[in-house]
Design a protein around this nucleic acid. Sequence first.
DNA 1: TTAGGGTTAG
Length: 784
Amino acid sequence: MELVTVLQLPQQPTPSFAIDFGVRFSSSSTTNSSPLRVMCSALSTPSSLGQIALNCTEVVKSEKGNLVETVESSQSTSLLDLIDQCKNTMQLKQIHAHMLRTSLFCDQYTASKLLTAYAISSCSCLIYAKNVFDQIPQPNLYCWNTLIRGYASSSDPTQSFLIFLHMLHSCSEFPNKFTFPFLFKAASQLKVLHIGKVLHGMVIKASLDSDLFILNSLINFYGSSGAPDLAHKVFTNMPGKDVVSWNAMINAFALGGLPEKALLLFQEMETKDVTPNVITMVSVLSACAKKFDLDFGRWICSYIENNGFAENLILNNAMLDMYVKCGSMNDAKDLFNKMIDKDIVSWTTILDGHAKLGNYDEAHCIFDAMPHKGTSAWNALISAYEQNGKPREALTLFYEMQLSKDAKPDEITLICALCACAQLGAIDFGHWIHVYIKKHDINLNSHLATSLLDMYAKCGDLDKAMAVFQSVERKDVYVWSAMIAVMAMYGRGKAALDLFSSMLEYNIKPNAVTFTNILCACNHAGLVNEGEQLFKQMEPVYGIVPQIHHYVCIIDIFGRAGLLEKAASFIEKMPIPPTAAVWGAFLGACSRHGNVELAELAYQKLLQLEPCNHGAFVLLSNIYAKAGNWEKVSNLRKLMRDSDVKKEPWCSSIDVNGIVHEFLVGDNSHPFSQKIYLKLDEISEKFMSIGYKPDMSNLLQLSEEDNLTEQSLNVHSEKLAIAFGLISTASSQPIRIVKNIRICGDCHAFAKLISQLYDRDILLRDRYRFHHFKGGKCSCLDYW
DNA sequence: TTAGGGTTAG
């Protein structure tokens, strides 16, 4: 019982209730001869189902020919059969109209058949289902369950709970073994752990906790809601398990980030003599894909081949996905070419596989070869570009999609496009998408809202990000976490902590991402004690086991605050082996605080794990430069030249009137390059005229951006972008810059002075956070 | 008289 919360519920059926039920049942029988019923009977011409069918056929014939073929072959087809044979909502509405005209609707059984068709068939239409339900005088439990079931699979599963609550008050029958699987389905869709736990309590109280269907749907619910441990408790304690129970549990492990447990469970099935089915194999392939276990994946594929599984599209897609995720494009291509049936999932999987490996030409070929280029096809390519560091290409495609008339952007397209805008700092394009959302009345759900507020924040408009956050009616953990991340990015630690408290007050349970963001906020604001406390509470209070990135955050918090010894002893006591990121954070702290001895230790540890880490070279050489040890700086440079250290092209970009301009270090490829360098000369003179002397220690230091084969005095990309901003934007406009690495000390001082001398706000986003330069000061208060 | 659970991508 410690597993669930049991709330105050209606009493279980008792013998006295059974008698009461009987009485009510007989009184409800009286309804059959109620005045309404009598009237209906009198109005109803047909007296047999055969006649009803005939009559209905005539109606259909006269109004629309669609159903004629279906019913003409059998005159005796009943109305109920006709409902089952409906192929679209229009046909169903015709029968509905006929039922109303002939008063057949007054028969509850017939009405409930119509309700079922409207609620759950292939021609479902939930608004009509609700309408029909509301017209039934005293809906029985079957009708209530059907409506709950319909909404559980809809885009608005919350309705299932509202209907259920209404049912508890209005229906004379208690929820039964059919009710709960539908409710757990709705809870799974919404991932609302607290509601599911209450329902679990009701199941126990109603003595339904041995029903196989309920327990299987419960495993699925806990698995979908991020609680594989609770799913496993249900699974372990259930008296009898069938293949569905095993499948649900395998899937719960895979979904819960425990793919190795999913694979072990599959192996255990054999020892328990449970025969796996197609769904088992799909779930196991999904676990292999999540574990990047190509060997096991290949073994599963041969198992499928050797055990006579019939050709199945979903199974083929799962194999395809496994090959792609495990990095074997050759296997994936072979399978894809062999597949007779392909759907949008097959095409998208193979397309994304090519794009992830950077084979954009092949990805485009796949896109061009797709038989139906609907929205999904466009989304596949746009998201492939966006998620693989090609935001400019993603936005170009998004633009092309607007021009093509075969597909309209949907929520996913817009999310991808917003993410691309955020990466580029393209605020004008991002704002245009916001207007598009409003103009087309697109529902601002939590996914879209999260992308929108993230875009505004990353493009430097905190007010708009906040406004979007406040406009979201139902804020889930992702929306809250995203807003906390925004506050972290802007160095507003206190505001992030306030948001965290508010989300707890709203009963939103923080997840691992929330903690990464809140620890990051503490880090950027120097809130050492608060960060340490939250980290200590993660497991005992919130049930979240700290992962490696949480450890990195806490080391960063200590290190940035200069508590190097504390950080070092923390690393020593870590229960998991320190990774390169851990040593990188520690090395950064040593560099900032000039501790040569500890830096050398961290450098050695880091290079053992990542021999080609370019950042490690730069950080250590900065420390040597600061300490005036030029010989060691020179040795490091030589070592770096000789080694195979590779770095991504670091750049700064600036959005001017909707066009994003990119600059590399010492870049002179821009059409306005000459003007930019003239502006930099002017700035330099202006700086000197007020007696500003560049910080030589800064200038002599290496930045990550410096090309080590040349002098380190190259003009950093953000200086070029700022100079371009000054000559190409109105003096009232802020300059918005995005840089893909951390800003160096010299450029930080440069931006502060520009903001003062030119009276310009500069909003600069670096790899980790935002800097708002205004009147000679930075929002980070020089703590970054 | 009616019915229910587990699967693939982005």
